[in-house]
Write a protein that binds this DNA or RNA. Structure first.
Lengths: 227, 227, 227, 227
DNA sequence: CATGAATGAGTATTCATTCAT
DNA sequence: GATGAATGAATACTCATTCAT
């Protein structure tokens, strides 16, 4: 845990116990952290296109040579940022699921919606850049990884709470719910700051929760989709 | 008609993305069309980052000089593609709204959801590139314009059909509906081709329509969001 | 006279007397004038580097094709501007020489110095661009032509007024006088606007005239300077 | 000494013409020197307009990337050449002033005139390109800096030798003298090679010195400019 | 291990000039 | 003659990446 997403990056180094190695490991980790942090900061400040590796190295107080010692490419740097950001989001979301478990459907959904909004508020500027300016291809598709993770967690939740749920195709249901919640909270945070003003946030939460809860447990939508 | 998407191009709106010359002669108009089409093709084939103006000119069978005779920047070219694409989508969506008018809520929603899927299927590869790889900033933010347009049309629809609708804040309702429908159809088309296989498409339409119809006209969600 | 420098440009057309030809000749002349004037204007407004032939044609209200009908190259346009400007300067300078003839040396010199300042004030912005931004090479060296012309006129003057003059090598003397007067008035107009304020102009004229008159007719420059 | 002309380069003075990096390592310094030297050489060989950054880099035996590592623009390169050239000229001129101090006026002036000619002969081809082909604007105006420097040094000289001088307005006098000497030597070197042939050089020195000495100390030009 | 000097393919864009209509 | 669409060589400049020290 902690920086588990980093393991794969520094991988190649075998765990040694000699003090000196530990010391240098700590130093390496600090360098890596500084680079990831600098990348995030530059990404927000300058945008993806103007975020050059040289600029990132400079902002991290590290030489360009060292940057390439730890990250094989610019893409790897951005992937690390994405992974860290996803990790942060997942922390919030999984906590919400834990808290939701056992609660009645409506209350549970509500918790998840609030968590979704909270998650999007963690570092909205970074989130926006990652979502809007970072070309998604190859390894960079990872932003979608969050969605996949969220999807499978949500599906598990549905399975465990099958009783209160009317929908049969749990996979499709998870898709519908996760996609909607994500889109609504994302769009609100990124494009509709007016909706997030104190009083209105509550309204957004109510409506979104209503949308999902109505869909999942909708009292009388009849046998099969009697819309 | 015909090149009506060009209207917005010809009308001088934004400083750096406004075409330089109005293509009055037939030859010039052909050149402009070839450039926009080539841009779309290259965007799909090579991705946004590798779509250089030289490559686009070459693909259009036009000299780089001619490209800059009509488009002051690479961005202007992409804006033209976006506008053309948005125009194509809006054609489908507005037609659906026209057809939906007067119909009962459930049927109307269904029409709109089907239209949303159809719209996303117009040129999915281009849509994906525009959505995922094209940095949204400055004039390029126009991709969101489609959402705004869709939002206001939907809001009008809600006003005219207030009777069957339970929700009070029409603006928020429009936001919820448009955002959800867009996200669900978009994500399905872009990331879940498995969902779009013949039999399952029908299911997606049902579920999505149910989500929205349940939200808007939901029989008994109680006085105020008694979820 | 008038636009005699233009003859060489329109050359190739034989003088015809048929009204229609006269009419079209007049039109051609108007076009040529418009182009030369537009070039001067653009040169001042945008500087030499940003003065493109297309911009010049546009400013002249003439198509780029027509521009090349009358001027074989961008350089030819600038040469025409230089020639016109030189012509304007020479008009002032020759008038001054005419007026100076017969006057005593001191008074004559004074007239010439005043004329030099007046000449530099004809179109100082254009003069500056021509002097500072226009690369002098090939046909563009013509700016120096003015100096040559001035030199030979001045030499003639010295010959006709040999009596009051102490200097023997008239050629060298002409060089010294013309170069000094030109440099002093030019530099003052271009770089020292503070010197040209009303009261100080008079002082500049006095000092410059004194410099030249002292040199040419200097009573007793003593042994060491006895050239 | 050695690279003292670099001082002004290293000190960050103007926004766009200031070098990017301080060349600390020996290799880097060699690169910077090679670039400045190559720029001068290319300027002379090809002229300002045809001196492209790629050509300069090639001539310096350095990659275009390295060029931009040290100089943020083509202009910066030319500014460096100008500064180096000015430095070279000032070395000669200040030495002459040092030698002139204490000497009687006529002899002192003579030394300065000779120094002016020498200075113009340092690298006449470069001097010509800098003076004639290099557009003077923005940071490139620095060529005039030399004149300013020369002006203030000369003014100081006049102050210290007030006794032998008839002129009252020292500022104006310095302007007259510096401008004349500069113009005469410059024009002779650049446009009148015939004047600089052995025997005639002496004559040019005499006449120029006479012009200036007569002006400054002219025996009897009466109380105030009785010309 | 760290440094930072060096690289060079690649990019967007301009502009003098030509020539079919 | 006039037009203006088309050309394409040329330019300044960036940036991910390598490698000698």
């Amino acid at each position: 845990m902690g920086y588990s997403h980093m393991d794969s990056i520094i991988s190649g180094r075998k765990p040694q116990t000699t003090p000196r190695k530990i010391a240098s490991q700590a130093r390496a980790r600090a360098t890596v952290d500084a680079l990831v942090e600098a990348t995030a900061r530059i990404l927000v400040r300058d945008g993806f296109d103007r975020a050059s590796t040289n600029r990132i190295a400079e902002a991290a107080g590290v030489s360009i040579g060292s940057l390439y010692q730890y990250f094989p490419s610019k893409e790897a740097l951005v992937v690390a940022v994405i992974e860290r950001h996803n990790h942060d989001l997942m922390t919030i979301v999984t906590a919400a699921f834990a808290k939701a478990n056992g609660k009645p459907l409506a209350a549970a959904i509500r918790l998840l919606v609030v968590a979704a909004i909270d998650a999007h508020r963690v570092d909205p500027e970074l989130h926006r850049v990652l979502a809007e300016q970072t070309p998604r291809s190859g390894a960079l598709a990872n932003i979608e990884l969050f969605q996949r993770d969220a999807h499978s967690i949500f599906r598990s939740y549905l399975e465990e709470n099958r009783s209160g749920i009317r929908v049969r195709d749990l996979d499709l249901a998870a898709f519908i719910c996760v996609t909607s919640i994500e889109a609504l909270t994302h769009t609100a945070v990124i494009h509709r700051p007016d909706i997030l003003v104190d009083e209105r946030v509550e309204q957004l939460v109510e409506e979104t929760s209503g949308l999902i809860a109505g869909y999942l447990g909708g009292a009388d939508r009849g046998p099969s989709m009697t819309v």
